[in-house]
């Protein structure tokens, strides 16, 4: 698994844990309304899980398993995929923090509240940039017919290694 995929998948796992925790708190507050402002975290929960967890995991796994471009195992333009990683997480972080900060008017009268209107613009631009860079980075790999250096070849090699001494693993 390449470094970028590891980073994307691990970041996605962190968003999963944080998103589930925020969602758990929001659900808990339905039954025990201990902090009314917690309801403003509901949209953050959606962003964390739909984009931070699911979309990012899909990107990380796709970067790893899509067919490579040549026999040397090239994955195309990795800088664009890194740009996607930065923009996607920047967008999710901004979107997640916006609701709670806007509701809390924090800091009172300060810069963060004043720029909150155009923070949506930054978030949208960030998502657009993430999607565009991802498409540019992968447009060739998604059309490529496949070769012997891809994920499937790795799986075959891994299975052969596992089954060499323990045939019971063959069915797994």
């Amino acid at each position: 698994m390449p470094k970028l995929s590891q980073l994307m998948i691990r970041t996605a796992l962190l968003w999963l844990g944080v998103g589930f925790s925020v969602g758990g708190l929001v659900l808990l507050a339905k039954d025990v309304p201990f902090w009314p402002a917690l309801w403003t975290w509901r949209l953050s929960h959606v962003y964390m899980l739909l984009l931070g967890w699911m979309v990012q995991l899909a990107c990380g796994v796709a970067f790893w398993i899509l067919p490579r471009l040549d026999a040397a195992g090239s994955r195309g333009n990795e800088q664009l995929a890194w740009l996607c990683y930065g923009c996607l997480n920047g967008g999710v972080a901004l979107a997640s923090l916006y609701g709670p900060l806007a509701a809390a008017r924090w800091p009172a009268g300060g810069a963060i509240w004043e720029i909150s209107d155009w923070r949506w613009e930054i978030r949208d631009c960030s998502y657009q940039l993430a999607v565009s860079s991802w498409q540019l980075a992968h447009r060739q790999r998604s059309r490529f017919a496949g070769n012997a250096t891809g994920w499937h070849a790795d799986r075959r090699e891994e299975s052969a290694w596992l089954c060499a001494e323990d045939p019971s693993l063959r069915s797994g």
């Binding site: 698994m1 390449p2 470094k3 590891q6 998948i9 691990r10 796992l13 962190l14 999963l16 844990g17 998103g19 589930f20 925790s21 969602g23 758990g24 708190l25 659900l27 808990l28 039954d31």
Partner: peptide, 21 residues
């Protein structure tokens, strides 16, 4: 809520060591 939070983190701990080179 508690069960679902435990589920999320349990999966993170289960899969984390397998995200590797």
């Amino acid at each position: 809520a508690l069960l679902q939070v435990v589920a999320g983190w349990a999966f993170v701990f289960a899969i984390w060591p397998r995200v590797k080179g």
